[in-house]
Design a protein around this nucleic acid. Structure first.
Lengths: 337, 337
DNA sequence: CTGAAAGCGCTTACAG
DNA sequence: CTGAAAGCGCTTACAG
């Protein structure tokens, strides 16, 4: 079934059928109705290859996920895919390693597929230094779970929570429960924007509460994965043995850390308290239940995709939004005050 | 950059360039060399839309994942994607609900995108009743994590473990540790092939060890998700309160079940032992570590994709393979003998 | 071994 | 409001 056959059956020309299909240009109500009827009768779907060939665009929207081991991204990816497809775009997801080069990947995809836009999950701090490369992608891009508000690249939007504030809240929470010997595990602050912002938030809170913090001793960087959390916690317990509470910058790291804590013979939360970050479903199931910061995933996925669609329509736009977070109390933090 | 420009620069016609690009038809060594040089000089990649439009094929290989909540599929999907792309095919992943209709989805994708083949993760028992629909897809299909060896549909291959044997091994293991009051949680045996096979394996083992098994009382069906495992375990504890060991047909269900057991005030494994299935990474991190059956995920992904590629080359083939599994001992099973 | 030409199914100025 | 026609970049009989 092609547009030509639809045209023949309705008695209109292919141009008019195309206009109806794309809801563009002016078509009489009568023509629209008749043509729509035939389209529906045959469940006709236009050939995307012909369409894209003509429009010089290869594909829908590309989603580049950096660090698939971080389950937060899984929840996000799922929601984004659904929303993108519901809006009539194809959605291609590319998984790259947490230490991979998402911009190089995007450039490759750009050459091969020419998507309408790129959605990045989990991007680097070095985005700023590579803003020309992003500009060169020449289509709307959005960073989800990050904040590029200061970048001013022109085609890079962003959406995420206020990482600094959320992390400060974590420290406040631990402080209220009597903890002052706090260790932190997270990503490399020089490479991961969210890690840097969260670390800054913690430092502000430490100052506020007059808590000592020696980054060398009390911060351990690793990957956002189970194994990463495990190793970072092992390392932290080693160099900061009197720690009473650990803040993990992702739930998946927290769960990895819990294993390390158990393996060291300590109890949670009796010996060591732990807090996570993200609020993934799993956090409510592990033992003990994880106290964590929930990022508003649904909202990030929904608005992130909407922003992408808006920017595709109006390529000169650049939108930055901040979504909410909330604290979820589990039973992984002991009150030692 | 187009094939036309390459033709112009080399002095050959576009037909010859196309032949070089696709390594088809006869081309003189000289022409091949000269054309290849120019192609490489410009890093030329042919426009896939034009190619596919002409060839009446839309896309690479479609992967339909049924039940994304099951983390096993995440590990599989990742490995498959990598392998598919390494072989020069595009890879489109579609996530549908565990209770969704994967065949309807495939038909829709078939109309819209015409992929070279379909990879199904997590398929239904009703495949057999709908074999004509699968045949109608008219491209190679493969079921991963399942066994369609008896179907004889013609275009449906399969790869998976021996679910019945693996499940019997689980019961053997529990029996060796003194358990005879065994509850099982899994999928709906009428709808999920692996669930049915595993249940059969358990029943055989129960007979072998002369253990009573009342399916109404001792089996609880639910979704392959954290929440599904939680609910099924709650239900099971309710109708079979003196259970000493629970076998969950997936690790993710086991983790959900563990939450339900803890919530009921019982200890693991002191009061109730639990075994999982799949051997996902997370199983080694939860507390206590989960004793489980590890499906050979790497092998399934690797061979599954290879089989798909072979079947694309030779569409009359249909391949069925069984991969290995192994037992991973955690500390979630108590010896009460 | 090689090239000119048709045609895949669409979109979109352009003309009416 | 509508249609004929050009053209997007390829592949592939067909003819030489």
């Amino acid at each position: 079934m092609t547009i030509k056959e639809i045209a023949k059956e309705t008695g209109y020309g292919i141009s008019t059928v195309s206009r109806v299909l794309n809801n563009t240009g002016s078509v009489s109500a009568k023509a629209r109705k008749e043509i729509t009827a035939v389209i529906e009768k045959y469940h006709f779907t236009p050939n995307v290859n012909a369409k894209h060939l003509k429009m010089q665009v290869n594909f829908g929207i590309a989603v580049i996920v950096k660090g698939i081991e971080n389950m937060l991204f899984l929840e996000l990816t799922e929601a984004i895919q659904q929303k993108v497809r519901a809006n009539g775009y194809e959605c291609l997801t590319y998984y790259i390693d947490e230490d991979g080069d998402e911009i190089a990947e995007a450039r490759k995809i750009q050459v091969e597929r020419r998507p309408y836009g790129f959605i990045f999950l989990g991007a680097d701090a070095n985005i700023y230094h590579r803003r020309l490369e992003i500009k060169d992608l020449n289509v709307p891009c959005i960073l989800i779970t990050d904040n590029s508000v200061t970048f001013g690249i022109g085609n890079l939007s962003s959406i995420g929570i206020d990482d600094s504030l959320a992390a400060a809240n974590v420290v406040d929470y631990l402080y209220r429960h009597g903890h002052t010997k706090i260790g932190i595990i997270g990503g490399n602050p020089d490479k991961s924007n969210p890690s840097r912002m969260r670390l800054e938030g913690c430092e502000l809170a430490f100052i506020k509460h007059d808590i000592d913090f020696d980054i060398e001793k009390q911060y351990s960087a690793s990957r956002f994965s189970l194994e990463g959390g495990y190793k970072a916690a092992e390392n932290l317990l080693d160099k900061f043995p009197d720690v009473t509470a650990i803040f993990a910058m992702s739930d998946i790291m927290a769960i990895g850390a819990m294993r390390a804590i158990y393996n060291s013979g300590r109890k949670i939360p009796a010996d060591i308290s732990i807090m996570g970050f993200d609020g993934i479903e799993l956090a409510r199931y592990v033992h003990p239940r994880l106290t964590t910061v929930r990022q508003n995933v649904e909202r990030m996925a929904e608005r992130g995709t909407e922003i992408m669609l808006e920017c595709i329509k109006n390529p000169t736009e650049e939108i930055h939004e901040v979504v909410s977070f909330s604290m979820i109390e589990g039973s992984s933090v002991a009150d030692i005050s």
